[in-house]
Amino acid sequence: MNTAIQRFDETRDALLDALGERDWAAIGRLDEACRVCIDDMLTASVVDEAQIKAKLEDLLGVYRDLLEATMGERQAIAEQMSQINQAKSAAKVYHLFS
């Protein structure tokens, strides 16, 4: 059980680091690794439910932060696309009158 929790903690910490760096490829890989770690913790021979609950609640906070970051990134991309479309429209108008 201790090794499963240790791997879980290391994976969660790596996920936080990847989030801080906005390394989306690493986040995808670490998300998969978190799922495996959770399964390992839940299927361990000795299960401390209180400890697992605390670990999962902590991970939930990480995923909230991740969700916030992805929504922010999506909004930034939408704004950039809007600016690109406005610039294209302005260029078309300019070419009509030149």
Rank of each mutant, 00 (worst) to 15 (best):
N2S: 10
T3L: 06
T3H: 02
I5A: 04
I5D: 01
R7N: 13
R7I: 11
R7C: 14
R7M: 13
R7S: 14
F8C: 11
D9K: 02
E10W: 02
E10V: 11
R12G: 03
D13A: 08
D13R: 02
A14K: 00
L15C: 06
L16G: 10
L16E: 10
L16N: 09
D17F: 00
D17P: 00
D17W: 00
L19T: 04
G20T: 06
E21M: 05
R22M: 08
R22F: 07
D23C: 03
D23F: 03
A26G: 05
A26K: 06
G28Y: 01
L30I: 11
L30T: 12
L30H: 01
L30G: 03
D31T: 15
D31Q: 10
C34H: 02
C34E: 08
R35I: 14
R35F: 06
V36R: 00
C37L: 12
I38D: 01
I38N: 01
I38S: 02
D39Y: 05
D39R: 05
D39F: 08
D40V: 15
D40M: 11
M41N: 03
L42W: 04
L42M: 13
A44W: 01
A44S: 12
S45C: 02
V47L: 11
D48K: 05
E49L: 11
E49I: 15
E49M: 09
Q51H: 05
I52Q: 03
K53D: 14
K53A: 15
A54H: 04
D58N: 09
G61W: 02
G61A: 10
G61N: 13
V62C: 04
R64L: 14
D65V: 04
D65S: 12
L66C: 09
E68N: 11
E68H: 09
T70Y: 05
M71D: 14
G72N: 09
G72D: 10
E73K: 03
I77K: 03
I77R: 08
I77Q: 07
I77P: 04
A78W: 03
A78L: 07
A78H: 09
E79P: 07
M81D: 15
S82K: 12
S82Y: 06
Q83E: 15
N85G: 04
Q86K: 10
Q86L: 09
Q86T: 12
Q86V: 09
A87S: 14
K88S: 08
S89E: 14
A90Q: 15
A91R: 05
V93A: 14
Y94W: 06
Y94K: 06
L96M: 10
F97S: 10
F97A: 07
